[in-house]
């Protein structure tokens, strides 16, 4: 792909890592040959799993995939500055047409305070303002932005959502959210042979039944689950949490066992280090 070929020459020898190399090793993934048709669930409990979103964003951009990023939680400049630290420029990717960025915070303002919208182009967050309570407009947005148009030569399309729990907070019913994801799976994973990465919050003792319903149902359908948890014993300066990587082999072949790996991690300024439980540098 033209982008991947051009980038290393520009960056030079001391360039920051494009993504968390250690995580790629654990997952057996490489930006040279991204998977196709996979659904990845990022789940965080008692901690913030957004570092995983940044990883996958820079991973797929580096891999030369066409990415549709539904960013509901933060502003574009936040993602862009973090991506720059990881060696990827979101603004350039947007210009190239590689990245389609939906800034939820901005488009909800446009929807509520903006001028009368054009009848031909409904806002992706149309469900906020009432009449149709489903997420059809959001799905249409995803489908249109990822469907291949003749000119570009990007690898398989990728849908990235940060984070799905916000849709519930905005009044979408859990069933509507699950419908939306199902449609996206059919469209992106099956038809276009692309990937989906979705972040959800979950907390068993939160009593948020709607959210638990969404999380449980997504867990059953995911090919890969990355579950970041805060340490059960509380805050620690040198170990920020524990990540459980579940490779759902049973989803493809009924006889197989799921592969579960557990690591602890520490987030640094531009990187995340992973190590076996109890083997952090601070302890040894």
């Amino acid at each position: 792909m033209r982008s991947t070929a051009a980038l290393p020459a520009l960056r030079g020898p001391s360039a920051p890592p494009a993504m968390f190399a250690e995580l790629n090793e654990l997952l057996g993934a490489s930006p040279e040959r991204p998977d196709a048709g996979k659904f990845t669930l990022l789940r965080d409990t008692r901690t913030d799993g957004s570092f995983l979103v940044h990883h996958f964003l820079s991973f797929y951009l580096r891999a030369g995939c066409k990415v549709c990023f539904v960013a509901l939680l933060q502003s574009f400049s936040h993602y862009s500055i973090v991506a720059q630290k990881l060696g990827v420029s979101l603004a350039a990717a947007k210009e190239r047409g590689q990245l389609v960025f939906l800034e939820g915070l901005k488009s909800c303002l446009d929807l509520l305070f903006g001028e009368e919208e054009q009848p031909g182009q409904p806002s992706p967050l149309q469900f906020l303002s009432g009449s149709p309570c489903d997420l059809r407009a959001l799905f249409d947005f995803v489908r249109v932005s990822l469907s291949a148009t003749g000119g570009d030569s990007w690898k398989g399309p990728v849908l990235l959502v940060d984070d799905l729990s916000v849709l519930l907070s905005l009044g979408a019913a859990p069933v509507a959210v699950l419908d939306f994801i199902h449609y996206c799976r059919v469209c992106v994973c099956c038809q276009l042979k692309g990937n989906i990465v979705v972040l959800v919050h979950s907390n068993e003792d939160s009593e948020d039944e709607e959210n638990e319903l969404v999380v449980n149902s997504l867990c059953h359908h995911s090919d890969l689950i990355l579950w970041a948890e805060g340490l059960a014993t509380g805050f620690c300066k040198d170990v920020h949490g524990q990540i459980t990587i579940i490779k759902r082999l049973s989803l493809r072949q009924a006889a197989e066992q799921d592969l579960v790996q557990i690591y602890q991690y520490k987030i640094q300024d531009r990187n995340v280090t992973f190590f076996a439980r109890g083997l952090s540098a601070a302890v040894l």
């Binding site: 008692r46 901690t47 913030d48 805060g230 340490l231 059960a232 014993t233 509380g234 805050f235 620690c236 170990v239 949490g241 524990q242 602890q264 439980r277 109890g278 083997l279 952090s280 302890v283």
Partner: peptide
């Protein structure tokens, strides 16, 4: 004090659990 040490998303649960 144990209750207090939880915070910033990390909640201390269970007295017997040992992370490392």
């Amino acid at each position: 004090a144990k209750l207090l040490s939880s915070g910033c998303g990390a909640m201390a649960i269970g007295k017997k659990h040992l992370d490392f």
